[in-house]
């Protein structure tokens, strides 16, 4: 187990390092950062000075190591646009993204797992079909469009929830649904497939034969085993959700990290952009790592390894 964890940890660290290098490189793809910092009407000398002061004239690798070192201590530099520390801005906005992401995942799990279980319990019935339809339809609705339609119906025509912002908790309802439904199809399908497989396994048949109740078999034995892959999928999806929050946050004007990312991208605020790409990647890496560990812990075969 320990060896397994260490191996996964090493892999995660290596991925993190590579990702950080890629996000660092983004800055240099955009051209000379010194000009952006020096600002309008800066003379050639001023730009030279800035380039030297910020150390842009040093070898790329040196700069990367320095940036990395600072990033490890939470220092992502200063936003070109807001002139405020990037880490502070992100720290202010991350809670919104995490709340919406967490709620969205909760919504997805609450919807997908019962649906998957029911679909597997009654395969090829109307229930199964309905669940499949929900999954197929869910996959095909573009989330930005879905969001707009929900705004038109629920906040404009019915006036039930605010169209934007999170001044009251009701502001979270629509974003949660839009973000959550996107993860629903995959989780539902996996739950259903896992349940089908488990239900046909010998020990379940034995359990049924022993006269254990349907509900006990279903939830105590079958679901427990079928849920293992769902956990890792959920973790992966949660990582995707944070990265995908940019669309949802833009539509609902939630001032979270995703919205900040979009705004930073469109105004060329590179330090912020870099930091956000890195942070979203880290979320994904951490979640998948945790999922691997959880999997190992839940799955006796892996635990032995």
């Amino acid at each position: 187990m320990f060896k397994y964890i260490m191996m996964k940890l090493g892999m995660a660290a290596l991925v993190a390092l590579t990702v950080s290098f890629i996000s660092f490189l983004l800055l240099f793809m955009a051209g000379d950062p010194a000009i952006s910092i020096a600002g309008e009407s800066a003379t050639h000398e001023v730009i030279e000075k800035v380039r030297h002061e910020y150390g842009f004239d040093r070898p790329l690798l040196v700069q990367y190591v320095e940036w990395c070192g600072k990033a490890l201590t939470g220092d992502f530099g200063v936003s070109y646009y807001f002139k405020a520390p990037v880490s502070q801005m992100i720290a202010e906005r991350l809670p919104v993204t995490m709340t919406v992401g967490g709620l969205g995942m909760g919504f997805a799990l609450l919807l997908a797992i019962p649906m998957g279980v029911l679909a597997a319990a009654f395969p090829n019935t109307i229930i199964d079909r309905t669940a499949l339809t929900v999954a197929v339809v869910g996959q095909a609705i573009p989330s930005f469009w879905f969001g707009l339609i929900l705004i038109v119906i629920f906040s404009v025509q019915l006036g039930l929830v605010p169209a934007s912002g999170t001044r009251t908790w009701t502001g979270y309802i629509l974003p949660t649904i839009v973000l959550g439904y996107y993860a629903t199809p995959a989780i539902m399908r996996l739950t259903r497939a896992g349940m089908l497989e488990v239900l046909s396994a010998d020990y379940i048949r034995t359990a049924r034969a022993k006269g254990l109740g349907w509900r006990v078999v279903m939830f105590k034995h079958a679901l427990r085993n079928a849920i293992i892959p769902v956990v890792s999928l959920a973790a992966v999806q949660l990582g995707f959700m944070f990265g995908g929050s940019v669309v949802v946050e833009t539509i609902f004007a939630l001032h979270g990290a995703g919205f900040l990312a979009w705004e930073s991208i469109s105004r060329n605020d590179l330090p912020t952009m870099q930091a956000l790409i890195l942070i979203f990647s880290m979320f994904y890496i951490v979640f998948t790592f945790l999922a691997d560990i959880l999997n190992a812990w839940l799955d006796p075969r892996l635990r032995a390894a």
Binding site: V15, V19, V236, G244, M273, S281
Partner: peptide, 22 residues
């Protein structure tokens, strides 16, 4: 598998947005 992990770790929408912006 390492390359796949790196790719998955990068947030696709954001990276695409950034590259298109650049």
């Amino acid at each position: 598998m390492f390359l796949v992990s790196v790719r998955l770790a990068l947030p696709a929408t954001l990276v695409a947005l950034a590259v298109v912006a650049l």
